[in-house]
């Protein structure tokens, strides 16, 4: 039996890679993909906890996370298309209209 901690460490490492990609890439599509990688890292830890606790509620949570990820991808990619139509770039450093 593989120990539960291995799964949680794997999930932490994948989450870290996602955070690193989100912080250091400036292509908005790759930043979006980093978010998907982070969501998948959380899903790995939820499914492994659900298996080791013998309780299926964790998998219900994964189900909802996948739903929200689908909605987020649709909205986010629509925003990217709208941005690209206005600015003809996907480089986030060139988008500073809101002076954030």
């Amino acid at each position: 039996m593989v120990p539960l901690n291995w799964y949680l460490v794997l999930s932490a490492i994948v989450f870290m890679i996602g955070v690193f990609g989100f912080l250091t890439r400036r292509n908005i599509i790759i930043m979006f993909m980093s978010i998907e990688v982070m969501l998948n890292a959380v899903n790995i830890s939820l499914v492994s906890l659900s298996h080791y606790m013998q309780d299926m509620r964790g998998q219900i949570l994964v189900f909802f996370i996948i739903t929200v990820a689908a909605a987020e991808a649709a909205i986010g990619l629509a925003i990217i298309i709208a941005l690209f139509r206005n600015k003809s770039t996907v480089h986030v450093d060139e988008m500073s209209e809101m002076k954030g």
């Binding site: 539960l4 901690n5 949680l8 460490v9 932490a12 490492i13 989450f15 870290m16 955070v19 906890l49 080791y52 606790m53 013998q54 309780d55 299926m56 509620r57």
Partner: peptide, 20 residues
């Protein structure tokens, strides 16, 4: 972040087993 998560894992205790 990863150091925080992994150091927290050392004191992690699994909840009682469910019914599934």
């Amino acid at each position: 972040i990863i150091v925080a998560i992994i150091s927290a894992l050392r004191s992690f205790v699994l909840a009682p087993q469910g019914m599934h």
